[in-house]
């Protein structure tokens, strides 16, 4: 079961990388250390007309952000290598990414932390588990977030 999910996940990553050429589509960076969480969100985001990029820890998040210059970052907090706070601190020091809006999706949440996050310019804090409906509402506050129409599949 694990293998199938992992394979499905790899496939969808590739897909989203492949379509990353168009400039008019808003670009979104999703960062979480759990590949299944990323995979499940990718499946739900698939119908939308966005350019989705993923990273599995804060450091990869920074590299990816430099490459894709996202219009929105959605990130977890507790992650290996570099956590969400470190990711945000890095992004705020890079001119290209300084003003990108950030949505936090975190498992652990308290007021001291939320104060700190707000002072770092976080726009929204969502607590896991967060429903896709709530997440989409948040996303649509920051970028154009619409479903894309698909071409009719041609016979293979």
């Amino acid at each position: 079961m694990g293998d199938t999910a992992a394979v499905a996940f790899e496939k969808s990553t590739h897909q989203s990388n492949r379509v990353s050429s168009s400039h008019s589509r808003p670009s979104v960076l999703l960062v979480d250390d759990d590949p299944y969480v990323i995979a499940a969100m990718q499946r739900n985001l698939h119908p939308y007309d966005i350019d989705l990029h993923v990273a599995f820890h804060g450091f990869q998040g920074v590299t990816e952000a430099l490459a894709c210059e996202p219009d929105l970052v959605i990130t977890d907090l507790q992650m290996p290598v570099a956590n969400g706070i470190e990711l945000m601190q890095c992004l705020s020091h890079i001119p290209k990414t300084r003003s990108v809006p950030i949505i936090i999706i975190t498992g652990r949440h308290n007021m001291t932390l939320s104060k700190r996050l707000r002072s770092l310019g976080v726009e929204a804090i969502l607590e896991k588990p967060v429903s896709f409906e709530v997440l989409s509402k948040q996303i649509s506050q920051f970028i154009r977030f619409e479903k894309q129409s698909l071409p009719f599949p041609s016979a293979r």
Binding site: V37, A40, R43, R108, P129, F132
Partner: peptide, 20 residues
């Protein structure tokens, strides 16, 4: 509760995907 956050996040998201 914290340990359950992550699995319940993707169980929910995947089920929603299956439904649609």
């Amino acid at each position: 509760a914290h340990e359950l956050n992550t699995p319940i996040q993707f169980v929910g998201d995947n089920t929603r995907f299956l439904k649609e």
